[in-house]
Computed example of a mutant assay.
Amino acid sequence: MRDETQAIHVAPWLHIVAPGAGLNFDQLLPSSGSVYVARLNGEDMPDESSAFEKFWETLKFPDYFKWNWHALYDCLRDLQWLSSDYHILISNQPNGTFRGSRRSRGILQGPVPSR
Rank of each mutant, 00 (worst) to 15 (best):
M1D: 15
M1W: 02
D3P: 14
D3A: 14
E4K: 06
E4S: 01
T5P: 00
T5I: 02
A7Q: 09
I8N: 10
I8T: 02
H9L: 04
H9Y: 10
A11W: 11
A11V: 05
A11C: 15
P12I: 15
W13K: 03
L14F: 08
L14K: 06
H15L: 02
H15V: 06
I16M: 02
I16R: 05
V17G: 11
V17C: 04
A18K: 06
P19G: 09
P19M: 12
P19C: 03
G20I: 00
G20P: 02
A21F: 08
A21Y: 04
G22S: 10
L23A: 14
L23C: 15
N24M: 06
N24W: 06
F25E: 12
Q27H: 13
Q27R: 15
Q27I: 07
L28E: 10
L28W: 01
L29R: 14
L29V: 05
L29T: 12
P30F: 11
P30C: 04
S31L: 10
S31T: 02
S32C: 12
G33L: 13
Y36T: 07
Y36S: 10
Y36G: 07
Y36I: 04
V37P: 07
A38S: 13
R39F: 11
G42Q: 13
D44W: 00
P46M: 12
P46Y: 06
P46W: 05
D47L: 15
D47R: 13
D47H: 15
E48V: 14
E48Q: 07
E48N: 14
S50E: 13
S50G: 04
A51F: 04
A51S: 02
F52P: 07
F55A: 01
F55N: 04
W56F: 13
W56M: 13
T58S: 05
T58Q: 03
L59K: 07
F61I: 10
P62G: 15
P62A: 01
D63R: 03
Y64E: 09
Y64P: 03
F65V: 12
F65N: 01
F65I: 09
F65G: 09
N68L: 00
N68Q: 01
H70Y: 04
H70L: 05
L72I: 01
L72F: 01
Y73F: 02
C75G: 01
L76Y: 03
R77S: 15
R77V: 07
R77W: 11
D78F: 14
L79M: 07
Q80G: 05
W81D: 06
W81V: 01
W81P: 07
L82C: 04
S84Y: 11
S84L: 14
D85F: 03
H87Q: 05
I88M: 15
I90R: 07
S91L: 11
N92P: 00
Q93P: 00
Q93E: 08
P94L: 10
N95V: 14
N95A: 13
N95R: 15
N95K: 09
G96A: 00
G96S: 04
T97C: 08
T97R: 03
R99A: 15
G100I: 03
R102W: 14
R102H: 02
R103I: 04
R103V: 11
R105I: 12
G106T: 12
G106C: 08
G106W: 10
V112G: 03
P113T: 00
P113W: 01
